Amino acid sequence: MVECVVRNWQGEEVGQATLELRVAREESAAHIVHRALVRQMTNARQGTASTKTRAEVRGGGRKPWRQKGTGRARAGSIRSPLWRGGGVIFGPKPRNYEIKMNRKERRLALRTALASRATDMIVVEDFAEQLSRPKTKELVAAIARWGIEPEAKVLLILPELAQNVYLSARNVEKLNLIPATQLNVYDLLNADKIVVTASAIKKIQEVYGE
């Protein structure tokens, strides 16, 4: 169970929020979170790197010179991997880097990662109505009032993406904005501070709580 202080738009403490999530056992928590992180980062690879072998490089069908009598080394093709412009030996070819992980394990790793960041989590009241129009300056000022340093990487979790909040946040370099239904292990571990709205806490409990 995670207990957090709830702050309002001005940064004042106005209550408490509780997040109850079933997490992995302490002895296996780091292992399962690491597996989920490796899976996410590996699955993000496109796997489109490709080089041509000597059979695929254009040209080189004719033997460049006769086998014997020239004093030169024997050569059968100008597309030999030993030649400039030749094929590549054991170069990369398109491949699938996908790693599979059971859905229950993925969700357990996500809950464990979120619970592990409890000390860096700041719960705030819903503030979408405070931004009647997109205003990056006001959002940055609010983040400072919540006690977050300007150079910190911040993950802002909302129940759903509000247009004015999204437009206010998209130009802040170290601010990452995601809806509660799209939580992932990398973003949770990469952020220095995690800001969650009160309604997003309920959404997380509803979607990921077991």
Rank of each mutant, 00 (worst) to 15 (best):
R103Q: 13
D120Y: 01
L139C: 02
Q163I: 06
K174T: 11
V154C: 07
R170W: 03
V140Q: 02
I178Y: 06
A109I: 11
S168C: 05
L175K: 07
M121I: 09
K104D: 03
A144Y: 08
E151L: 14
I157P: 05
N164M: 08
S132L: 15
Q163A: 10
K137D: 07
A144H: 14
L177W: 05
L110R: 03
V165G: 01
G147I: 12
I178P: 00
F127W: 06
P134N: 10
V140I: 03
I157T: 07
K174V: 06
I157A: 10
D126W: 04
P179L: 01
A118R: 13
R106P: 04
N164G: 08
Y166I: 02
L155A: 10
Q163N: 10
K100F: 14
A109D: 13
S168E: 02
A141G: 10
V165E: 00
L167A: 06
I157N: 03
K135Q: 09
Y166A: 14
Q182P: 08
L158Q: 12
F127A: 08
R107N: 04
L131R: 04
I157H: 06
E151C: 08
D120L: 06
A141E: 15
I148L: 10
A162T: 01
R170Q: 06
P150I: 06
V154I: 14
A152I: 05
K153M: 08
A169K: 07
A152H: 15
F127P: 02
K135I: 04
E151N: 12
A113D: 09
N171T: 05
E151V: 14
V123F: 09
P179T: 04
P159A: 00
I122M: 10
V165H: 05
P179W: 04
V123C: 15
T181E: 11
V165T: 05
A118S: 14
A142H: 06
E173I: 11
E129M: 04
S132V: 15
L156V: 08
V165R: 02
A141K: 12
L110M: 08
A128V: 10
A169D: 07
K104V: 01
A141F: 06
R111S: 08
V172H: 00
L167F: 07
E125Q: 10
N171Q: 10
L155N: 09
A162I: 03
A152W: 08
A128D: 13
R170I: 06
E173T: 14
G147Y: 09
K174C: 05
I148E: 03
R145G: 12
G147T: 13
P150R: 12
E151T: 14
T119L: 13
S116D: 11
E138K: 14
S168Q: 05
T136L: 03
P179A: 04
S116L: 13
